[in-house]
Design a protein around this nucleic acid. Structure first.
Lengths: 227, 227
DNA sequence: CGGTATGTTGACAGTGATCAAGAAAGGTGG
DNA sequence: CCACCTTTCTTGATCACTGTCAACATACCG
Protein backbone atom coordinates (compact mmCIF):
# COMPACT_ATOMS: atom_id res chain seq x y z
CA UNK A 1 0.00 0.00 0.00
CA UNK A 2 2.58 2.54 1.05
CA UNK A 3 5.47 3.02 -1.34
CA UNK A 4 8.24 4.86 0.51
CA UNK A 5 10.35 7.21 -1.54
CA UNK A 6 13.23 9.44 -0.64
CA UNK A 7 12.20 12.55 1.18
CA UNK A 8 14.32 15.65 0.83
CA UNK A 9 13.89 19.23 1.91
CA UNK A 10 11.94 20.15 -1.16
CA UNK A 11 8.91 19.80 1.06
CA UNK A 12 7.75 23.23 2.10
CA UNK A 13 5.43 23.35 5.08
CA UNK A 14 3.99 26.72 4.07
CA UNK A 15 3.89 29.59 6.51
CA UNK A 16 4.91 28.48 9.97
CA UNK A 17 5.83 31.14 12.48
CA UNK A 18 9.14 29.53 13.45
CA UNK A 19 12.49 30.62 12.11
CA UNK A 20 14.09 28.64 9.30
CA UNK A 21 16.41 26.61 11.45
CA UNK A 22 13.73 25.58 13.89
CA UNK A 23 11.38 24.88 11.04
CA UNK A 24 13.98 22.58 9.54
CA UNK A 25 14.34 20.66 12.78
CA UNK A 26 10.58 20.38 13.22
CA UNK A 27 10.14 19.29 9.64
CA UNK A 28 12.65 16.51 10.09
CA UNK A 29 10.95 15.31 13.26
CA UNK A 30 7.65 15.24 11.49
CA UNK A 31 8.91 13.67 8.30
CA UNK A 32 10.43 10.84 10.33
CA UNK A 33 6.86 9.74 11.01
CA UNK A 34 5.78 9.62 7.39
CA UNK A 35 3.99 6.85 5.52
CA UNK A 36 3.63 6.84 1.78
CA UNK A 37 3.55 8.52 -0.57
CA UNK A 38 0.41 7.29 -2.31
CA UNK A 39 -0.69 8.42 -5.74
CA UNK A 40 -4.32 9.36 -6.44
CA UNK A 41 -6.03 9.90 -9.75
CA UNK A 42 -8.28 12.88 -10.36
CA UNK A 43 -11.54 12.61 -8.41
CA UNK A 44 -10.24 9.77 -6.28
CA UNK A 45 -11.50 9.80 -2.68
CA UNK A 46 -8.58 10.13 -0.26
CA UNK A 47 -10.44 10.60 3.00
CA UNK A 48 -14.18 10.16 3.36
CA UNK A 49 -16.47 12.13 5.62
CA UNK A 50 -16.92 9.89 8.65
CA UNK A 51 -13.53 8.19 8.37
CA UNK A 52 -11.50 8.10 11.57
CA UNK A 53 -9.03 10.97 11.88
CA UNK A 54 -6.10 8.59 12.27
CA UNK A 55 -3.95 10.20 9.60
CA UNK A 56 -2.88 13.70 8.68
CA UNK A 57 -2.03 14.40 5.04
CA UNK A 58 0.89 16.19 3.47
CA UNK A 59 0.51 16.92 -0.20
CA UNK A 60 3.70 16.23 -2.13
CA UNK A 61 2.27 17.13 -5.52
CA UNK A 62 -1.14 17.98 -6.91
CA UNK A 63 -4.36 19.46 -5.52
CA UNK A 64 -6.84 18.20 -2.98
CA UNK A 65 -10.35 19.49 -2.48
CA UNK A 66 -11.78 19.44 0.99
CA UNK A 67 -15.52 19.04 0.65
CA UNK A 68 -18.88 18.07 1.99
CA UNK A 69 -21.48 16.11 0.03
CA UNK A 70 -25.14 16.81 0.70
CA UNK A 71 -28.01 14.36 0.57
CA UNK A 72 -29.09 15.55 -2.86
CA UNK A 73 -25.62 14.77 -4.20
CA UNK A 74 -24.44 18.34 -4.55
CA UNK A 75 -21.03 19.19 -3.17
CA UNK A 76 -19.66 22.15 -1.29
CA UNK A 77 -15.91 22.71 -1.50
CA UNK A 78 -14.46 24.30 1.62
CA UNK A 79 -10.89 24.65 0.41
CA UNK A 80 -8.20 23.55 -1.99
CA UNK A 81 -4.87 22.30 -0.72
CA UNK A 82 -1.64 22.36 -2.70
CA UNK A 83 1.85 20.91 -2.67
CA UNK A 84 3.58 21.36 0.63
CA UNK A 85 0.41 21.79 2.66
CA UNK A 86 -0.33 19.70 5.71
CA UNK A 87 -3.96 19.22 6.61
CA UNK A 88 -6.56 16.93 8.09
CA UNK A 89 -5.81 17.73 11.71
CA UNK A 90 -8.92 17.45 13.84
CA UNK A 91 -10.10 17.43 17.44
CA UNK A 92 -12.83 14.93 16.67
CA UNK A 93 -12.38 11.20 16.20
CA UNK A 94 -13.90 11.33 12.70
CA UNK A 95 -13.48 13.63 9.72
CA UNK A 96 -16.27 16.11 9.11
CA UNK A 97 -15.17 16.63 5.51
CA UNK A 98 -13.96 14.49 2.64
CA UNK A 99 -10.64 14.99 0.91
CA UNK A 100 -10.58 14.19 -2.81
CA UNK A 101 -7.95 14.57 -5.48
CA UNK A 102 -8.89 17.54 -7.66
CA UNK A 103 -6.04 16.55 -9.99
CA UNK A 104 -3.38 13.83 -10.11
CA UNK A 105 -1.99 13.94 -6.58
CA UNK A 106 0.76 12.45 -4.42
CA UNK A 107 0.20 12.33 -0.67
CA UNK A 108 2.23 11.48 2.43
CA UNK A 109 0.44 10.32 5.60
CA UNK A 110 1.25 10.86 9.26
CA UNK A 111 -0.29 8.99 12.12
CA UNK A 112 -2.25 11.46 14.18
CA UNK A 113 -1.41 9.79 17.48
CA UNK A 114 2.30 9.91 16.71
CA UNK A 115 2.12 13.58 15.78
CA UNK A 116 0.16 14.39 18.89
CA UNK A 117 2.64 12.54 21.10
CA UNK A 118 5.52 14.32 19.39
CA UNK A 119 3.71 17.63 19.85
CA UNK A 120 3.23 17.09 23.58
CA UNK A 121 6.88 16.15 23.93
CA UNK A 122 8.26 18.96 21.81
CA UNK A 123 6.50 22.32 21.96
CA UNK A 124 8.08 23.31 18.67
CA UNK A 125 6.19 20.60 16.84
CA UNK A 126 2.92 21.65 18.45
CA UNK A 127 3.72 25.25 17.65
CA UNK A 128 4.37 24.31 14.07
CA UNK A 129 1.03 22.53 13.80
CA UNK A 130 -0.58 25.54 15.43
CA UNK A 131 0.95 27.80 12.82
CA UNK A 132 -0.31 25.77 9.87
CA UNK A 133 -3.77 25.50 11.41
CA UNK A 134 -3.83 29.23 12.07
CA UNK A 135 -2.98 29.78 8.42
CA UNK A 136 -5.78 27.56 7.31
CA UNK A 137 -8.15 29.34 9.67
CA UNK A 138 -7.26 32.69 8.21
CA UNK A 139 -7.87 31.40 4.72
CA UNK A 140 -11.24 30.00 5.75
CA UNK A 141 -12.19 33.33 7.29
CA UNK A 142 -11.27 35.30 4.21
CA UNK A 143 -13.11 32.79 2.09
CA UNK A 144 -16.29 33.16 4.10
CA UNK A 145 -16.08 36.91 3.62
CA UNK A 146 -15.64 36.39 -0.11
CA UNK A 147 -18.86 34.42 -0.38
CA UNK A 148 -20.95 37.48 0.40
CA UNK A 149 -19.65 39.35 -2.62
CA UNK A 150 -20.70 39.47 -6.27
CA UNK A 151 -19.86 36.55 -8.53
CA UNK A 152 -17.36 38.46 -10.66
CA UNK A 153 -15.53 39.65 -7.54
CA UNK A 154 -15.38 36.14 -6.12
CA UNK A 155 -13.85 34.87 -9.33
CA UNK A 156 -11.36 37.73 -9.61
CA UNK A 157 -10.23 37.20 -6.01
CA UNK A 158 -9.97 33.46 -6.49
CA UNK A 159 -7.77 33.91 -9.54
CA UNK A 160 -5.37 36.35 -7.94
CA UNK A 161 -5.15 34.31 -4.74
CA UNK A 162 -4.55 31.14 -6.68
CA UNK A 163 -1.88 32.78 -8.78
CA UNK A 164 -0.13 34.07 -5.66
CA UNK A 165 -0.39 30.72 -3.99
CA UNK A 166 0.99 28.84 -6.97
CA UNK A 167 4.06 30.89 -7.58
CA UNK A 168 2.94 34.34 -8.53
CA UNK A 169 3.35 34.34 -12.27
CA UNK A 170 0.58 35.95 -14.25
CA UNK A 171 0.14 32.81 -16.32
CA UNK A 172 -2.27 30.64 -14.44
CA UNK A 173 -2.96 27.08 -15.48
CA UNK A 174 -5.99 26.14 -13.41
CA UNK A 175 -5.16 22.81 -11.84
CA UNK A 176 -8.77 21.95 -11.02
CA UNK A 177 -11.98 21.69 -13.03
CA UNK A 178 -14.37 24.62 -13.38
CA UNK A 179 -17.08 22.79 -11.51
CA UNK A 180 -14.74 22.51 -8.53
CA UNK A 181 -13.98 26.21 -8.64
CA UNK A 182 -17.67 26.98 -8.93
CA UNK A 183 -18.55 24.87 -5.87
CA UNK A 184 -15.77 26.50 -3.93
CA UNK A 185 -17.10 29.96 -4.77
CA UNK A 186 -20.71 29.08 -4.08
CA UNK A 187 -21.65 29.50 -7.75
CA UNK A 188 -23.00 27.35 -10.55
CA UNK A 189 -20.59 26.58 -13.35
CA UNK A 190 -22.64 28.66 -15.76
CA UNK A 191 -22.20 31.71 -13.55
CA UNK A 192 -18.48 30.99 -13.21
CA UNK A 193 -18.17 30.72 -16.97
CA UNK A 194 -20.04 33.98 -17.47
CA UNK A 195 -17.89 35.72 -14.87
CA UNK A 196 -14.72 34.59 -16.60
CA UNK A 197 -16.10 35.81 -19.90
CA UNK A 198 -16.98 39.15 -18.30
CA UNK A 199 -13.46 39.54 -16.87
CA UNK A 200 -12.07 38.68 -20.28
CA UNK A 201 -14.26 41.26 -22.00
CA UNK A 202 -13.22 43.92 -19.50
CA UNK A 203 -9.58 43.13 -20.38
CA UNK A 204 -8.55 41.97 -16.91
CA UNK A 205 -7.72 38.47 -18.03
CA UNK A 206 -7.23 36.55 -21.27
CA UNK A 207 -7.74 32.92 -22.10
CA UNK A 208 -4.57 31.16 -23.22
CA UNK A 209 -4.39 28.16 -25.52
CA UNK A 210 -7.02 25.51 -25.65
CA UNK A 211 -6.70 24.30 -22.09
CA UNK A 212 -7.98 25.99 -18.96
CA UNK A 213 -5.10 28.40 -18.73
CA UNK A 214 -5.48 32.12 -18.15
CA UNK A 215 -3.30 35.18 -18.31
CA UNK A 216 -3.87 37.81 -15.65
CA UNK A 217 -3.53 40.81 -17.88
CA UNK A 218 -4.45 43.49 -15.35
CA UNK A 219 -3.81 42.23 -11.89
CA UNK A 220 -4.31 45.64 -10.32
CA UNK A 221 -7.87 45.84 -11.56
CA UNK A 222 -8.55 42.31 -10.36
CA UNK A 223 -7.26 43.19 -6.92
CA UNK A 224 -9.23 46.40 -6.85
CA UNK A 225 -12.41 44.34 -6.93
CA UNK A 226 -11.37 42.52 -3.74
CA UNK A 227 -11.37 45.38 -1.23
CA UNK B 1 -6.35 50.45 32.22
CA UNK B 2 -6.25 46.87 33.43
CA UNK B 3 -8.37 46.07 36.46
CA UNK B 4 -7.28 42.72 37.85
CA UNK B 5 -9.98 40.59 39.46
CA UNK B 6 -9.97 37.18 41.03
CA UNK B 7 -9.84 34.38 38.52
CA UNK B 8 -11.43 31.07 39.35
CA UNK B 9 -12.10 27.96 37.36
CA UNK B 10 -15.40 29.22 36.04
CA UNK B 11 -13.44 29.93 32.90
CA UNK B 12 -14.15 27.26 30.36
CA UNK B 13 -11.74 27.02 27.47
CA UNK B 14 -14.22 25.29 25.15
CA UNK B 15 -13.29 22.10 23.36
CA UNK B 16 -9.65 21.26 23.90
CA UNK B 17 -8.51 17.74 23.09
CA UNK B 18 -6.71 17.25 26.41
CA UNK B 19 -8.21 15.40 29.34
CA UNK B 20 -9.74 17.34 32.21
CA UNK B 21 -6.78 17.20 34.48
CA UNK B 22 -4.29 18.32 31.84
CA UNK B 23 -6.70 20.98 30.72
CA UNK B 24 -6.86 22.30 34.27
CA UNK B 25 -3.09 22.48 34.48
CA UNK B 26 -2.82 24.18 31.12
CA UNK B 27 -5.56 26.59 32.01
CA UNK B 28 -3.75 27.60 35.17
CA UNK B 29 -0.50 28.14 33.30
CA UNK B 30 -2.28 30.31 30.81
CA UNK B 31 -4.32 32.22 33.33
CA UNK B 32 -1.18 33.10 35.23
CA UNK B 33 -0.31 35.31 32.25
CA UNK B 34 -3.58 37.23 32.24
CA UNK B 35 -4.13 40.96 32.13
CA UNK B 36 -7.49 42.52 32.76
CA UNK B 37 -10.35 42.06 32.63
CA UNK B 38 -11.56 45.08 30.71
CA UNK B 39 -15.19 45.91 30.17
CA UNK B 40 -16.49 47.00 26.76
CA UNK B 41 -19.80 48.54 25.87
CA UNK B 42 -21.82 47.29 22.92
CA UNK B 43 -20.21 48.25 19.60
CA UNK B 44 -16.93 49.20 21.27
CA UNK B 45 -13.84 48.41 19.24
CA UNK B 46 -11.62 45.95 21.12
CA UNK B 47 -9.05 45.18 18.46
CA UNK B 48 -8.79 47.07 15.20
CA UNK B 49 -7.81 45.63 11.85
CA UNK B 50 -4.13 46.53 11.52
CA UNK B 51 -3.40 46.54 15.25
CA UNK B 52 -0.36 44.52 16.29
CA UNK B 53 -1.20 40.98 17.37
CA UNK B 54 0.41 41.49 20.78
CA UNK B 55 -2.53 40.21 22.79
CA UNK B 56 -4.84 37.22 22.68
CA UNK B 57 -8.34 37.62 24.09
CA UNK B 58 -10.34 35.46 26.43
CA UNK B 59 -13.98 36.39 26.75
CA UNK B 60 -15.16 36.27 30.33
CA UNK B 61 -18.68 37.42 29.57
CA UNK B 62 -20.54 38.76 26.54
CA UNK B 63 -20.17 38.43 22.77
CA UNK B 64 -17.52 39.61 20.39
CA UNK B 65 -17.88 39.91 16.64
CA UNK B 66 -14.85 39.29 14.50
CA UNK B 67 -15.25 41.40 11.41
CA UNK B 68 -13.84 43.20 8.42
CA UNK B 69 -14.91 46.67 7.31
CA UNK B 70 -14.88 47.47 3.62
CA UNK B 71 -14.12 50.80 1.99
CA UNK B 72 -17.79 51.57 1.46
CA UNK B 73 -18.39 51.18 5.19
CA UNK B 74 -20.18 47.85 4.99
CA UNK B 75 -19.09 45.14 7.38
CA UNK B 76 -18.63 41.40 7.04
CA UNK B 77 -18.80 39.38 10.23
CA UNK B 78 -16.63 36.28 10.16
CA UNK B 79 -17.62 34.86 13.53
CA UNK B 80 -19.09 35.48 16.95
CA UNK B 81 -17.19 34.56 20.08
CA UNK B 82 -18.78 33.82 23.43
CA UNK B 83 -17.86 33.45 27.09
CA UNK B 84 -14.99 31.07 27.65
CA UNK B 85 -13.57 31.38 24.15
CA UNK B 86 -9.99 32.29 23.50
CA UNK B 87 -9.22 33.95 20.21
CA UNK B 88 -7.06 36.41 18.35
CA UNK B 89 -4.12 34.09 17.80
CA UNK B 90 -2.29 34.91 14.58
CA UNK B 91 0.83 34.12 12.62
CA UNK B 92 1.07 37.64 11.31
CA UNK B 93 2.34 40.67 13.21
CA UNK B 94 -0.94 42.51 12.67
CA UNK B 95 -4.60 41.56 12.93
CA UNK B 96 -6.45 40.99 9.68
CA UNK B 97 -9.82 41.42 11.37
CA UNK B 98 -11.33 43.71 13.97
CA UNK B 99 -12.88 42.47 17.19
CA UNK B 100 -15.83 44.47 18.46
CA UNK B 101 -18.21 43.99 21.35
CA UNK B 102 -21.54 42.80 19.97
CA UNK B 103 -22.96 43.22 23.47
CA UNK B 104 -21.69 44.32 26.87
CA UNK B 105 -18.49 42.29 27.19
CA UNK B 106 -15.74 41.50 29.68
CA UNK B 107 -12.35 40.46 28.28
CA UNK B 108 -9.07 39.11 29.62
CA UNK B 109 -5.86 39.65 27.67
CA UNK B 110 -2.77 37.50 27.27
CA UNK B 111 0.51 38.65 25.88
CA UNK B 112 1.12 36.72 22.70
CA UNK B 113 4.86 36.49 23.22
CA UNK B 114 4.38 35.05 26.71
CA UNK B 115 1.91 32.47 25.43
CA UNK B 116 4.21 31.52 22.58
CA UNK B 117 7.15 31.12 24.93
CA UNK B 118 5.03 29.03 27.28
CA UNK B 119 3.85 26.95 24.33
CA UNK B 120 7.39 26.22 23.17
CA UNK B 121 8.38 25.23 26.70
CA UNK B 122 5.31 23.13 27.42
CA UNK B 123 3.83 21.10 24.56
CA UNK B 124 0.54 20.83 26.41
CA UNK B 125 0.01 24.54 26.20
CA UNK B 126 0.75 24.54 22.48
CA UNK B 127 -1.52 21.54 22.05
CA UNK B 128 -4.22 23.35 23.89
CA UNK B 129 -3.92 26.38 21.62
CA UNK B 130 -3.91 24.02 18.66
CA UNK B 131 -7.16 22.47 19.84
CA UNK B 132 -8.97 25.78 20.21
CA UNK B 133 -7.70 26.96 16.84
CA UNK B 134 -8.78 23.69 15.23
CA UNK B 135 -12.24 24.21 16.69
CA UNK B 136 -12.41 27.67 15.28
CA UNK B 137 -11.25 26.38 11.91
CA UNK B 138 -13.98 23.80 11.83
CA UNK B 139 -16.56 26.40 12.65
CA UNK B 140 -15.27 28.67 9.89
CA UNK B 141 -15.42 25.80 7.41
CA UNK B 142 -18.98 24.93 8.29
CA UNK B 143 -19.88 28.57 8.11
CA UNK B 144 -18.47 28.93 4.61
CA UNK B 145 -20.56 25.95 3.53
CA UNK B 146 -23.63 27.56 5.06
CA UNK B 147 -23.22 30.70 2.97
CA UNK B 148 -24.02 28.84 -0.24
CA UNK B 149 -27.45 27.87 1.00
CA UNK B 150 -30.83 29.60 0.94
CA UNK B 151 -31.52 32.45 3.36
CA UNK B 152 -34.09 30.58 5.42
CA UNK B 153 -31.72 27.63 5.82
CA UNK B 154 -28.87 29.90 6.90
CA UNK B 155 -31.06 31.46 9.55
CA UNK B 156 -32.41 28.13 10.79
CA UNK B 157 -28.89 26.73 11.09
CA UNK B 158 -27.65 29.83 12.82
CA UNK B 159 -30.42 29.63 15.40
CA UNK B 160 -29.91 25.97 16.25
CA UNK B 161 -26.13 26.36 16.39
CA UNK B 162 -26.41 29.39 18.59
CA UNK B 163 -28.84 27.66 20.90
CA UNK B 164 -26.51 24.67 21.20
CA UNK B 165 -23.54 26.88 21.78
CA UNK B 166 -25.28 28.92 24.45
CA UNK B 167 -26.51 26.11 26.61
CA UNK B 168 -29.00 24.19 24.58
CA UNK B 169 -32.31 25.39 25.88
CA UNK B 170 -34.98 26.05 23.29
CA UNK B 171 -35.47 29.58 24.57
CA UNK B 172 -32.97 31.70 22.74
CA UNK B 173 -32.35 35.28 23.71
CA UNK B 174 -30.30 36.61 20.83
CA UNK B 175 -27.36 38.37 22.39
CA UNK B 176 -26.47 40.36 19.29
CA UNK B 177 -28.35 42.74 17.01
CA UNK B 178 -30.15 41.55 13.88
CA UNK B 179 -27.83 43.55 11.67
CA UNK B 180 -24.89 41.62 13.10
CA UNK B 181 -26.60 38.30 12.46
CA UNK B 182 -27.46 39.42 8.94
CA UNK B 183 -23.85 40.40 8.16
CA UNK B 184 -22.65 37.11 9.56
CA UNK B 185 -25.04 35.19 7.31
CA UNK B 186 -24.27 37.25 4.22
CA UNK B 187 -27.79 38.68 4.17
CA UNK B 188 -29.43 42.07 4.45
CA UNK B 189 -31.42 42.70 7.60
CA UNK B 190 -34.64 42.79 5.60
CA UNK B 191 -33.99 39.28 4.32
CA UNK B 192 -33.12 38.10 7.81
CA UNK B 193 -36.32 39.61 9.14
CA UNK B 194 -38.36 37.97 6.39
CA UNK B 195 -36.67 34.61 7.01
CA UNK B 196 -37.49 34.78 10.71
CA UNK B 197 -41.08 35.64 9.86
CA UNK B 198 -41.22 32.71 7.44
CA UNK B 199 -39.87 30.30 10.08
CA UNK B 200 -42.42 31.69 12.50
CA UNK B 201 -45.28 31.18 10.03
CA UNK B 202 -44.15 27.62 9.35
CA UNK B 203 -44.35 26.98 13.09
CA UNK B 204 -40.64 26.18 13.57
CA UNK B 205 -40.03 29.10 15.89
CA UNK B 206 -42.01 31.65 17.84
CA UNK B 207 -41.17 35.14 18.95
CA UNK B 208 -41.17 35.61 22.69
CA UNK B 209 -41.87 38.83 24.56
CA UNK B 210 -40.97 42.23 23.24
CA UNK B 211 -37.25 41.71 23.07
CA UNK B 212 -35.32 39.71 20.50
CA UNK B 213 -35.99 36.39 22.13
CA UNK B 214 -37.15 33.31 20.26
CA UNK B 215 -38.51 29.93 21.13
CA UNK B 216 -37.35 27.03 18.98
CA UNK B 217 -40.66 25.27 18.74
CA UNK B 218 -39.65 22.54 16.29
CA UNK B 219 -35.95 21.97 16.46
CA UNK B 220 -36.10 18.84 14.33
CA UNK B 221 -37.55 20.71 11.38
CA UNK B 222 -34.95 23.45 11.79
CA UNK B 223 -32.17 20.88 11.76
CA UNK B 224 -33.68 19.09 8.80
CA UNK B 225 -33.04 22.22 6.73
CA UNK B 226 -29.32 22.06 7.52
CA UNK B 227 -28.35 18.81 5.83
C1' DC C 1 -42.46 61.84 26.65
C1' DG C 2 -40.14 62.54 22.73
C1' DG C 3 -36.05 61.10 19.77
C1' DT C 4 -32.95 57.71 18.03
C1' DA C 5 -31.83 53.11 16.95
C1' DT C 6 -33.58 48.87 15.52
C1' DG C 7 -36.77 45.77 13.34
C1' DT C 8 -40.81 44.75 9.98
C1' DT C 9 -43.28 44.81 5.78
C1' DG C 10 -44.18 45.99 0.86
C1' DA C 11 -42.93 46.96 -4.09
C1' DC C 12 -39.63 46.52 -7.45
C1' DA C 13 -35.02 45.58 -9.58
C1' DG C 14 -30.89 42.92 -10.10
C1' DT C 15 -28.05 38.90 -9.52
C1' DG C 16 -27.53 34.32 -10.01
C1' DA C 17 -29.96 29.55 -10.65
C1' DT C 18 -32.13 26.62 -13.74
C1' DC C 19 -33.24 24.63 -18.11
C1' DA C 20 -31.75 23.80 -22.70
C1' DA C 21 -28.72 23.61 -26.57
C1' DG C 22 -24.44 23.65 -28.63
C1' DA C 23 -19.18 23.91 -28.83
C1' DA C 24 -14.72 22.57 -27.50
C1' DA C 25 -11.45 19.52 -25.34
C1' DG C 26 -9.77 15.02 -23.99
C1' DG C 27 -9.65 10.03 -24.43
C1' DT C 28 -10.18 5.58 -26.96
C1' DG C 29 -10.03 2.36 -30.52
C1' DG C 30 -9.53 1.43 -35.15
C1' DC D 1 -3.85 9.97 -37.52
C1' DC D 2 -8.64 10.20 -37.69
C1' DA D 3 -13.43 9.10 -36.21
C1' DC D 4 -16.13 8.78 -32.45
C1' DC D 5 -17.58 9.39 -27.80
C1' DT D 6 -17.63 11.42 -23.27
C1' DT D 7 -16.71 15.04 -20.37
C1' DT D 8 -16.29 19.76 -19.68
C1' DC D 9 -17.20 24.37 -20.87
C1' DT D 10 -19.93 28.26 -23.08
C1' DT D 11 -23.95 30.85 -24.26
C1' DG D 12 -28.91 32.07 -24.30
C1' DA D 13 -33.67 32.46 -22.23
C1' DT D 14 -36.36 32.43 -18.30
C1' DC D 15 -37.38 32.29 -13.37
C1' DA D 16 -36.53 32.52 -8.33
C1' DC D 17 -34.20 34.54 -4.59
C1' DT D 18 -32.28 38.28 -2.46
C1' DG D 19 -30.99 43.28 -2.52
C1' DT D 20 -32.58 47.94 -2.62
C1' DC D 21 -35.56 51.68 -1.63
C1' DA D 22 -39.29 53.35 1.08
C1' DA D 23 -42.57 53.60 4.74
C1' DC D 24 -43.92 52.30 9.07
C1' DA D 25 -43.74 50.02 13.78
C1' DT D 26 -41.53 49.04 17.87
C1' DA D 27 -37.97 49.11 21.32
C1' DC D 28 -34.62 51.65 23.80
C1' DC D 29 -32.78 55.78 26.24
C1' DG D 30 -32.40 59.63 28.38
Amino acid sequence: MFEPQSVDDRYNFGGASLNNCEQQTVMNSILALRRGPIRYRRNAMIVCEGDPTDYILLIVKGVIRSCKTYRNGSRGIVAFHFSGELFGWSNDPIHSLSAEAAAETLVLFFKRSALLAAALRDGRIATYLLATTTNELRRAQEHSLLLSRLAECRVATFLTDLSTRMGDTNYLDLPMAHYDIASHLGLEIETLSRSITALEKSGSIARVGGRRALFLRDRASLERMSD
